[in-house]
């Protein structure tokens, strides 16, 4: 068993909530956030079709680039930022430890 990593979700007040996430279950970041009861609809279940799992990475390691499908969704969001990603398209790996993000779908 690998150790859990910690991802931080920054809320509107700027507080960072620590979220323990297992790395050995093949989860996406969206699934990990949903499992921790964060308010994410993930209407399409992780197919990069709904953008209701949109997050902004504030502090994160170098990640594989967004696919064309993900970019298509992101570019058509009104609140895109430089750190925008679809959390369903990010695999939870040990490198993600310490990542800080903001939930963007409800803004």
């Amino acid at each position: 068993m690998q150790e859990d990593i910690t991802v931080y979700v920054e809320n509107e007040a700027g507080e960072r909530i620590a979220v323990p996430v297992p790395t050995d279950m093949g989860l996406s970041l969206m699934e990990a956030l949903k499992a921790n009861e964060f308010d994410i609809m993930a209407t399409c279940g992780g197919m990069a079709l709904c953008a209701t799992c949109h997050v902004e990475l504030i502090e994160a390691p170098e990640l594989p680039e967004a696919s064309d499908d993900e970019m298509y969704m992101l570019e058509n969001l009104p609140n895109l930022t430089d750190g925008s990603r679809l959390s369903c398209q990010i695999k939870v790996t040990p490198e993600l430890d310490g990542t800080v993000l903001r939930l963007m779908a409800n803004h």
Binding site: T43, A51, N76, P78
Partner: peptide
Amino acid sequence: IPLFGLVP
């Protein structure tokens, strides 16, 4: 006309 998709 902004067309940025729809959410339920």
